[in-house]
Design a protein around this nucleic acid. Structure first.
Lengths: 118, 118
DNA sequence: CTCATTAATAAGTACATGCTTATATTATTA
DNA sequence: TAATAATATAAGCATGTACTTATTAATGAG
């Protein structure tokens, strides 16, 4: 979930789109004119942004009006900071890793060394 | 700058490393043991994270002890939110785009239409 | 209905990225 | 000094991604 959002943000064209949409909502052909890049390119990037939840769209005739989902973005950032702060053992996806967490750094290396010696 | 940071965060293995380092500093071989993935894979991902500024490292003998640069991360998030909030015309990289910004949505399309008609 | 406009999608291509295996580098230890 | 440990780097490969051009779909206007 964080992954798809960061991946969406980690691309220059999409970052530009985000910033432009932060100013006001725009239709695809507006973005085309403003950014001077091809229409399919816009559409493809918007698709990524929509799937990540960062951009909302509504249809208005033949136009697709896009807007930045600022609430979602702010919320995600907030959640990410909380995610980093919460105890490792409370993260289900990292249960295995958590169980292998050493109590001091370098312990793992020492363990490997000891296994060989013993 | 935001790009490299988001790109670094937009990858599952690196996100895991970030979360593990949020718990405590770890050397490469600790990460290897904890995550059960190959050493070059760890080193390569750490390189990306270091270049993005997210991870610091120090040498301790033959060990490379890595730590999350939490201050930098928090600061970046803060800056990103400010970046999105500040007026478009104050962003140098988007000066061109800003100058082409329409006053109402769909204006660009209308412009194109008018050009043809006239 | 026909044609133009807006947008989405498909196909193809070049380049980027993540991984593996193998090797090089540096520091420790015997 | 020789051997080992920890890490970095190189090379090769497979997959992913961003772009282009071409096509399709849907809406609106004449």
């Amino acid at each position: 979930m964080f992954e798809s959002i960061f991946k969406a943000l980690g691309e220059p064209t999409r970052l530009k789109i985000i910033k432009l949409l932060a100013d006001r909502e725009l239709c695809v052909c507006d973005l085309e004119e403003i950014m001077k890049i091809s229409q399919p390119r816009i559409s493809q990037h918007l698709k990524v942004l929509k799937h990540a939840g960062l951009v909302n769209e509504r249809k208005e005739g033949q136009r697709t009006i896009c807007s930045l989902n600022r609430k979602f973005l702010n919320n995600t950032i907030e959640q990410f900071e909380q995610y980093l702060s919460k105890p490792l053992e409370t993260v289900p996806e990292l249960a295995e890793e958590s169980s292998r967490m050493p109590t001091i750094y370098g312990e793992s290396c020492m363990k490997k060394y000891c296994e060989k010696v013993l």
